[in-house]
Design a protein around this nucleic acid. Structure first.
Length: 449
RNA sequence: GUGCCUAUAGCUCAAUUGGCAGAGCGCUUGUCUGUGGAACAAGAGGUUGCGGGAUCGUGCCCCGCUAGGCACCCCA
């Protein structure tokens, strides 16, 4: 290796892409681990798919969002695209492997996706989604389960406040029909309604009028959409108002089943709400839609999704209903950091072993035996550096405890154990050293951080 | 894809009207070859994000690009 005489290559990463240093990776892995545990406790199976797909697999599913898709021609002249979500690949997998999968198929998928969006806080071009979906069940019970899983994960992460807002595409459509919105403007309707929080009722009314809705109709629609209260009571009221509207009764019945059973899934009543102003943009949603939001920090939603009964059929040739939820890892991390949840060590190593030129062999053997007992051990590789130096480096890496093994310790059969934060040091017999280390680590973890 | 703000040492920032590029922290070395964080001393570290222009002269003015933040759009 040499760059002598040449110009140095510029070290850079692309806009919206990032390196994750160990301290960040430890937090990311911890969060992913919590989500994975809950997914598996619900019997969801792991799945992974290629990052790159044939372009035609990805197109025609997400509507306008496909503008954000990374696509290009590969060296073999194939049109290819990076996946922009995990839902479309799932639909492809279910269609391709119908004979190998038992329906309903419950799967989770934790992986990066790519969208060429403009970066902002909690918004990147490469980001991770944690998805749990059920393919092959049309039952509202399936929707309820994925909503419950979402609530469970957010609860387990310790998010101090979040709300899962629940709505239904068909119900919103019915409301639109009742208000006289032309069918052709349905997606414009969803988008406008969805912006209620941001632009307010007057803003929404203005946008609706631009799509051919009269002032009266717009206000009637807004009145319906902004109703708040106990979900089952609200739905009961709507049932009467929308008696004559096609599809409304089915949508209301589905939502009623979901709200009826959510408490039985263990979801606290203050964690979800019926909110008909929620529409969501992705084109493939066909029924229930939902979204988890927090008020601080301002990162929009931390997760969402819904029912997409037509998507698998686009690949399979026969309809296979499906529903699911998606959590945004980056958004969740913003919340965790903002609220100081989850303080973690900066190193995966629990123990640093400090050594001397004459004790390298003994120290390596000690490290091995500590590892066999289940501890994570960072063996110093610098016997020529002073003990102080080795301790300092271990502390800077964030390792909580050091074991010092010199000639004296080998001789006496007792190692020196030093707490790198407080500085206290004790002598511990080599027999039972692992046990003592584990106790001290546990004691440290119990301390407020 | 659009608009506004920003970019100076590893980090946080300073630099008067356009006139010698600096500080603190961190880093390296030494005091100090078995006990770090302190103190003292010395040292390294910069094409002021990149490229162009105007000017006798630019970190500072103008243009383009790149990246970050914010607001749209959209979304996780």
């Amino acid at each position: 290796m040499s760059n002598g005489g040449g110009s140095k290559r510029q070290a850079r990463v692309l806009k919206g892409f990032r390196d994750f240093l160990p301290e960040q990776m430890i937090l990311r892995q911890r969060i992913v681990g919590i989500a994975r545990d809950i997914f598996e406790r619900h019997g969801f199976e792991p799945l992974d798919t290629p990052a790159l797909e044939a372009l035609e697999v990805l197109t025609g599913k997400a509507g306008e969002n496909e503008q954000l898709m990374y696509h290009f021609e590969d060296a073999g002249g194939r049109e290819v695209g990076l996946r922009y979500d995990l839902t479309v690949p799932l639909a492809r997998v279910v269609a391709m492997h119908q004979n190998e999968l038992v329906l309903p198929f419950k799967r989770y998928h934790i992986a990066p996706v790519w969208r060429a969006d403009n970066p902002q806080r909690g918004r990147f071009r490469e980001f991770w989604q944690c998805d749990a979906d059920i393919a092959g069940s049309a039952s509202p019970l399936a929707d309820a389960e994925v909503i419950a899983i979402m609530a469970e994960v957010l609860e387990a992460l310790g998010l101090p406040e979040f709300t899962i807002r629940i709505s239904h595409r068909r119900l919103l459509e019915s409301l639109g029909r009742a208000a006289g919105v032309p069918e052709a403007h349905a997606s414009a309707l969803y988008r406008s309604i969805d912006k209620l929080d941001k632009i307010g009722p007057e803003g929404v009314a203005r946008e609706l009028q631009a799509t051919g809705v009269t002032d009266d109709q717009a206000h009637e629609l807004l009145a319906l959409v902004t109703m708040r209260g106990e979900p089952l009571a609200l739905l009961g009221g709507l049932r009467g108002e929308l008696e004559d509207i096609d599809g409304a009764a089915t949508a209301i019945a589905e939502l009623e089943q979901i709200f009826d059973v959510l408490p039985d899934f263990g979801v606290a009543a203050d964690r979800y709400a019926l909110d008909l102003s929620l529409a969501r943009g992705l084109a493939y949603y066909t029924g229930t839609v939902f979204e988890a939001t927090v008020t601080r920090p301002n990162v929009g939603s931390v997760g969402g999704a819904g029912r997409y009964d037509g998507l698998v059929g686009a690949f399979a040739g026969r309809d296979i209903p499906a529903t699911g939820m998606s959590l945004g890892l980056e958004r969740i991390i913003e919340v965790v950091r903002e609220h100081g949840l989850m303080p973690l060590p900066a190193s995966v190593a629990q123990i640093a072993v400090v050594l001397f030129p004459e004790t390298t062999g003994a120290a390596a053997r000690l490290a091995s035996s500590l590892r066999e007992s289940g501890l994570s051990v960072d063996l110093s590789l610098q016997p020529h550096r002073s003990v102080g130096e080795q301790l300092k480096l271990a502390d800077r890496k964030g390792i909580p405890l050091a074991v010092i093994l010199g000639a004296n310790e080998v001789e006496s059969g007792a190692a020196a154990v030093k707490d790198l934060r407080g500085g206290e040091q004790i002598s511990v017999p080599l027999d039972g050293l692992a046990e003592t280390l584990r106790e001290r680590l546990a004691a440290r973890d119990a301390l407020p951080v």
